[in-house]
Amino acid sequence: MQPATITIEAAAKAISSILDALDRDPTDPAAVALRAALRRKGTEIAGAGDGITLQNVHELVCGVGDDRNERRAAELDAAWRVLPGWQA
């Protein structure tokens, strides 16, 4: 059985949904589970090997330059800091 192909759009949509939930209440007890989901999704992206990189998804979800959402970037940086190949 082959792993499902991950598209950058699907990965960004999933991560955006998780970050939207964290936006509503970052202190909610469910926030721990949401942050774990960010790590799992990052691991899935990193292991996909089909041209999608964590950096590509990070930029799509968080923006770049003046459009960068620093809160979202900080959440992803914290969740992905342990992943191979991730550099904040």
Rank of each mutant, 00 (worst) to 15 (best):
D28C: 07
I52P: 08
I8A: 14
D50L: 05
L22D: 02
G49M: 08
W86T: 01
L60P: 03
Q87H: 14
P29C: 03
A48E: 08
C62A: 12
S17D: 13
D28N: 15
L22M: 03
P3Q: 08
L83V: 13
E75S: 06
G51C: 09
A10Y: 04
A79I: 00
G85E: 07
A78V: 02
A73N: 01
A37H: 12
V61R: 04
T5E: 11
A14R: 15
G63L: 03
A78G: 13
A14M: 09
A10Q: 12
D66C: 01
W80R: 00
W80G: 00
L54I: 07
A48C: 10
D66M: 06
C62F: 01
A79N: 01
R71H: 02
A74E: 01
G47F: 09
I15A: 07
D50Y: 07
G51D: 07
D50R: 12
I18C: 00
L54M: 08
G63F: 05
Q2K: 15
Q55C: 08
G65M: 02
L83T: 09
I45V: 14
A21H: 06
E44Y: 10
A12K: 05
A78C: 06
A46S: 14
A36N: 14
L22N: 02
W80I: 00
N56H: 15
E59V: 04
D28I: 03
A30P: 05
L83W: 07
G42L: 03
A74N: 02
M1Y: 11
A30C: 07
D20I: 03
T43L: 11
N56M: 14
V64P: 03
I6N: 06
Q87E: 11
D50C: 11
G85S: 11
